[in-house]
Amino acid sequence: MSSVSNTLIGFLNLLTLLISIPIIGGGLWMAKSTATCESFLQRPLIVVGFVILLVSLAGFIGACYHVVWMLWVYLVVMLFLIASLLAVTVFGFVVVGPGGGVDVPGKAYKEYHLQSYSPWLRKRIENPDYWMTVRSCVLGSKTCSKVVMWTPVDYLTRNLSPIQSGCCKPPSACDYQAPMMTQDPDCYKWSNDPNLLCYECDSCKAGVLEDVRRDWHRLSVLNIIMVMLLIVIYFVGCCAFQNAKRADGYYPHGESRMYKARPKWNLY
């Protein structure tokens, strides 16, 4: 039974080592596929994936070969990793919790408003330098290329992503036959130019934040699953550490492991 925990920790770390590969791949895929180039989402995911990969490798080697110092480092780093993932998860739920769209009567899509999101996200997205980077990514993704060709019937029946809803069209409440002074300021910022559209609108920034919010929620679910798995592995790792300490290589040279004061050599 003394080697059961070592075998189990080796198996579980082999499992988490394999899990870290799609986590890293997912972060790299998000970095290339997202329309907003939100690196502050992809970077933590990639870093977490590499840390889990290295920690799992250390735990696997330490448990299988009874390397005590490697298991000790493994347990310390594992504890730090669990605490970090918990902090990131709580941060995600607190900061990215507010938001969501508003239904548009008679339309299949929703519209998004900047004031619906947390102050931390609004401050970040309203930074001119940061917004220019995000705007360039949205423009380069050609997210609006199909939407600008839609007919009025399409707007009634088709759905829009948050970025398409906020960046590719003016707010539905805009009435260009009425005095502009009484309307949403985004109505002023709208342009038919494909390179301008509503990319400077607050609704566009809100659409980007909604896209970020949805990605954060997915990441938070992944974090919760990983935290639960890592806690189980951590406790099993503690048992493996104790087993490794009792292994032959752990005792100092010359130390006796004889427990009887007067051993009986003659069995007869």
Rank of each mutant, 00 (worst) to 15 (best):
V95G: 02
V67Q: 10
K110H: 03
I46Y: 12
V96R: 08
H66L: 08
V102M: 02
L75Q: 06
F93D: 00
L79D: 02
V102A: 05
L81G: 09
A108E: 06
G92I: 07
Y109K: 00
P44I: 15
A83C: 14
A58N: 05
V95E: 05
V102I: 11
I82M: 05
G97V: 11
G49A: 15
W69H: 11
V96I: 10
Y109E: 01
A58M: 15
K110P: 01
S84I: 06
V51S: 13
G62I: 06
Y109L: 00
V48L: 15
L71T: 02
V95D: 01
I82C: 04
P105F: 05
V47I: 15
S84F: 09
L75S: 11
A58D: 10
E111C: 00
V104C: 07
M70P: 07
A63P: 06
Y109D: 03
P44G: 15
G100T: 01
G92Y: 00
I61F: 12
W72H: 09
P98W: 07
A63Y: 05
V104Y: 00
A87C: 12
K107S: 01
C64T: 13
K110E: 01
F93T: 10
V55W: 10
A63E: 04
V55K: 04
Y65S: 04
F50D: 13
A58Y: 05
G100Q: 04
V76Y: 05
V88S: 13
L54Y: 12
L57D: 03
F91L: 10
T89D: 13
I52S: 14
W72T: 12
C64E: 04
F60T: 00
V48S: 15
K107N: 04
K110G: 00
M70G: 04
L81M: 07
P105Q: 07
